[in-house]
């Protein structure tokens, strides 16, 4: 995602939100993935997509009739994440159909404005209630 890119139809902007590499969150995540203490796991930023405000917006974008299944994920690391840092994250979510999908592109920047990382999440939306996967 690039900040200067204009929105396409059907895209919704999420954020910016403040996110952080807080010691307790990093430690909890590192323990859960069996990583060494004191390191920030490469996939830790996925935690930021579970911030309550963002999660609620994503749930709304998915809608009640679908079960999201993680289809693909990417991280681009621009600057190393350091412990105890606060960053600003903004995201754009886009619904696709045939197949039903929600794609989220997020960018975390330092408060100086320097980009730290970008990530892209693709969720396949499995219809609930009838048909395959229900």
């Amino acid at each position: 995602m690039r900040a200067e890119r204009s929105l396409r139809p059907g895209e919704i902007v999420l954020g910016p939100f403040e996110v952080a590499t807080g010691a307790s969150e990093v430690q909890a995540f590192a323990t859960a993935v069996g990583a060494r203490a004191g390191e920030i796991p490469a996939t830790f930023p996925i935690v930021w997509l579970s911030a309550p405000a963002l999660k609620a917006a994503l749930r709304e974008a998915v809608g009640p009739d679908f079960l999201p299944v993680h289809e693909s994920q990417s991280f681009d690391y621009v600057r190393p994440l350091v412990p105890g840092a606060a960053l600003r994250m903004s995201a754009v979510a886009r619904r696709e159909s045939a197949p039903e999908r929600l794609v989220v592109e997020a960018e975390a920047t330092e408060f100086s404005g320097a980009r730290a990382l970008t990530m892209r999440v693709a969720l396949r939306l499995v219809p609930l209630g009838s048909g395959e996967g229900a």
Binding site: A28, V33, A51, L67, V69
Partner: peptide
């Protein structure tokens, strides 16, 4: 369950 808690991904699936 530990990963769900630590990551915040509590997808019931």
């Amino acid at each position: 369950a530990a990963y769900a808690a630590a990551s915040g991904d509590d997808n019931p699936l």
